[in-house]
Design a binder for these strands. Sequence first.
DNA 1: ATAAAAAATATACTATAGGAAAATTTTTAT
DNA 2: ATAAAAATTTTCCTATAGTATATTTTTTAT
Lengths: 205, 205
Amino acid sequence: MNVDLEDFQSNRRQGNPASNKSDEIGPRLHQLRKGRGWTLQVASKASGISASAFSKIERGELSPTISTIQRIARGFEMDVLSLLADPETQPTLLGRRSVTRAEEGKPHLSGNCDNKLLCADLKNKRITPIKTRVVARDVEEYDVWPKTDAEIFMTILSGTVVVHSKIYEPLELHEGDSMYYDASAEHVWTRKGPEEAVVLWVLTS
Amino acid sequence: MNVDLEDFQSNRRQGNPASNKSDEIGPRLHQLRKGRGWTLQVASKASGISASAFSKIERGELSPTISTIQRIARGFEMDVLSLLADPETQPTLLGRRSVTRAEEGKPHLSGNCDNKLLCADLKNKRITPIKTRVVARDVEEYDVWPKTDAEIFMTILSGTVVVHSKIYEPLELHEGDSMYYDASAEHVWTRKGPEEAVVLWVLTS
DNA sequence: ATAAAAAATATACTATAGGAAAATTTTTAT
DNA sequence: ATAAAAATTTTCCTATAGTATATTTTTTAT
């Protein structure tokens, strides 16, 4: 396949790791340990990581390996994911809301589609809403056929879209049509006809 | 300090520990990279991690540090948590799908709205899609203000809708506008203007 | 089939994670 | 206040994560 290396230039950020607050494991560990009233010795004994290493990790002087994190998680009797997920940065949605106006939306180029994430400012949503202008006219234009464990609901806002799947025959959808499917089988969309094809779809996250 | 080494015997292993399946980052990375049709060179360029290190990580010959994982996550344009979360562990309803054509939909009268459940033939969906023609012009027309613990995403297909909530000022939405909110606070919709107000919305179930 | 190209892995090295113990800081008791 | 004890950080060291390059393996073309 042809993947242009230059496409990823923008991602090659070397310098400052842990730019995202939720990525900072140090304060998170400190908070967890203190929350249980543990000293470094206790945390060390529980996890099998030396107190000095633990201290360095908490203060961000050391970036632990994943196996170290796994041992620490065991020490806290947690799984790695909940250890890394900082509840502070996982705001509950309680009573919160977000509006995206007609021509707004956070651009999100992917595959052969022009996507706009709707209400992207709200984090930790159970549903991800996206508006997509389908560009591809032929399945050949896709290098990879996406596949996730999400469920997808889509509705055609304009134009004609053909849904291709590894396990179904191609299916044509016209303006106003809706479709619900689970995306565990590879699938792609193409457009058909003269009109611009716009899909509004949501997926479970 | 006194740490009994015996306590850690079970942890002290280099070869291939990873007791928990979801802890095995190697196969997960391999799957992600291959899923995008990326070579090690491309993944290296995207993440800033050398191809050789990437290869070793995939094969479990090396336990990456959290900062390395963060860089890899950036390369894949994912957050660390979804990178580590193994989708294999989650159940799927393999390959099911349902289509509702433009003028179809299971009627479902409720409150002061004319609802059509979309793709109603598919049971146990994680998302419930509904198309609603809003009838009420005034909040007085509602006896009860619904309230659930679901999250709602709505988009206006036509007309003007006003969203009323117990905790917000009324908000006007026009054709093409979208809104995401959690429905734990009481809320109702009314319509405004001459045009028919149609809302396409989905809620988590 | 073989040659050339591309991709993956092995090697040799440097940078850094992690451990044991010493030094420092903080807490507790008097 | 000072001394003792406890907790944390520093130091110095070894083990290993990560890099650059060489080698091997796999794919593509002829």
